[in-house]
Design a protein around this nucleic acid. Sequence first.
DNA 1: CCCCGTTGTCGAAGCGCTTCGACGCTCACC
DNA 2: GGTGAGCGTCGAAGCGCTTCGACAACGGGG
Lengths: 339, 339
Amino acid sequence: MSGRAVTIAEVARHAGVAVSTVSYVLSGKRAISADTRRRVLDSVQMLGYHPNAGARALASRRANVIALVLPLRAGMHVPVLMQFATSVVTAARRYDHDVLLLTADEGSDGLRRAAASALVDGLVLMDVELHDDRVPFLRELAEPSVLIGFPADPSGLTCVDLDFTRAGALCVEHLAGLGHRKLALLGAPSVVYERGTGFARRTWEGFTEAVDRYGLTGVALPCEETFEEVAATVGGLLEHNPDLTALVVHNETAVNHVLGALRLYGRRVPEDVAVVAICPDDIAERSSPPLTSVLVPAEDVGREAVRLLMDKLEGRAVPEGTLLEPRLTTRGSTRPDPA
Amino acid sequence: MSGRAVTIAEVARHAGVAVSTVSYVLSGKRAISADTRRRVLDSVQMLGYHPNAGARALASRRANVIALVLPLRAGMHVPVLMQFATSVVTAARRYDHDVLLLTADEGSDGLRRAAASALVDGLVLMDVELHDDRVPFLRELAEPSVLIGFPADPSGLTCVDLDFTRAGALCVEHLAGLGHRKLALLGAPSVVYERGTGFARRTWEGFTEAVDRYGLTGVALPCEETFEEVAATVGGLLEHNPDLTALVVHNETAVNHVLGALRLYGRRVPEDVAVVAICPDDIAERSSPPLTSVLVPAEDVGREAVRLLMDKLEGRAVPEGTLLEPRLTTRGSTRPDPA
DNA sequence: CCCCGTTGTCGAAGCGCTTCGACGCTCACC
DNA sequence: GGTGAGCGTCGAAGCGCTTCGACAACGGGG
């Protein structure tokens, strides 16, 4: 543990073989007799050998590290970010890679630094915005990258995300199936739309498109995140749309405030108003009543992003865009329209 | 950008000096004439040279990377974790270090791997529990580490945290100063206390101690996180303690439910019940009314952890325990007791 | 005027690993 | 019995950097 670290040379000596043989045993890049392999592996075990990452990176021109670039400011809900991060780490470990954490506030320079110094072999960027400075840079970069989220022009890139358009539509389909005719979407705070964050817009479009397709009436509004603003929005909505029977909420922070506001205005969920949320499962489950929801499959997206990056690292071709199919879970907040 | 990377040898050739001279210019470890320095720096600029991290690590026996170990499951509020993480990254960058992200689910083995392979020079562990498996391991480890949070026995380690005992006491002092005589603490979910998470207990102790010291009456309860459980807890509390005028809430997730429950029971904040929260500022500000709060200074804790780790890496002595002083911000949820 | 301490620079020896080419075997095949 | 194709192993050449010791060149003090 302490003192000088064990080197491959010591393992070789201990096992009575050449250094290169140890290397080949460990990498499996050449055939080695079962007998020799055993001896080497035993020595590795015995001496507690761990290959030096720097030396390995230098010689093999592969750091076995990928970068995970966090968004500067969360356009998405923070716990979801965290789920992404841990799922990326877990997935990367399965490919024997580690994860270097970068924040977006270094901008493209940070990415260049990490890539040019061969600190990392590839990059995963989270929460990419529609018009992101780093996108042109990534196109030029020799190191492969995968984006979580879609920029306005995804050509020449590799992007993964939940299919938010489908998610918005799915909510409408569920509600339409229950007989609701008049729906509303409460979305992200308006600043998020102005910033051009893709997922918020895409949900909005999916909602609108499905409402039209089913011949329903629907209204979509941005939604701020303090209780008072939410209450005002919900109040206005109910007042102007007395026949409203269903709400789609795509705003993790506000969703509990929405339920609070409905309580405040004496509307029961789901008897008077049905609610579908697009949010992580834990929020949906912890609400009262538990919410029918379409979850953001952070886990899956992270894993998929890593898989795509590994494919690119191996030189395999990958699709430009990967959209993950949303799944809706029915819980207590939706029920056939009583009307 | 693409093609082979620029090496120090190319810089040296371009500047007409020896490789070692370039190295010394860049590291500043030997005196170099202003003239030579200029030439070298120009060449670096011109060629877009970035030292190869692996080679540097190999030769200097310093990776210039530290590990950040995320908790397996959040005992603390997730957004706070994220703040920690970004502040650690930002602070590390100021010392010219990068951050490798590890999850706790690899346990001690993961730490050993990262340390033994010289991937990282030191470790920062988040959300350490009172009886953490990794603690004995860290004591033995040659690489220095800093813990965020205190284990039961912090001897031989370096730990940083907010002084939660003081935070609990500070809330009581604030309320006592406003004339409140009968207080309650709503804490973390009971499972957190059972798990032996230090910060939850310490707040509890600080609260209790200060209540005694001021000769007040106080009751402390764990608090679950669904609206219904919170409402039940708050309801029971109000019923059994009709003279209760103040609440301390140390549970970021539940705090909005607490406010909702108080609304539900017709108690106005702060007229009927004063509320002090221990939570991040953004939650306190976004509540209605905005909450008087003691914030968890994630930013400061992360920065301090990195500073301590850098000190250890340089061989400087550091204190075993560092407690950060809490600060209370008065907002709309507390006001002199009307009684 | 000589010697020695500074200052600035260079060359070369690693750091610990991967990988390439070489080489000695064994064995199947004709 | 000769030949060629694996198979298993070895030695050595780097990978790109840091750092140590050496050494000119230059002054200042005796």
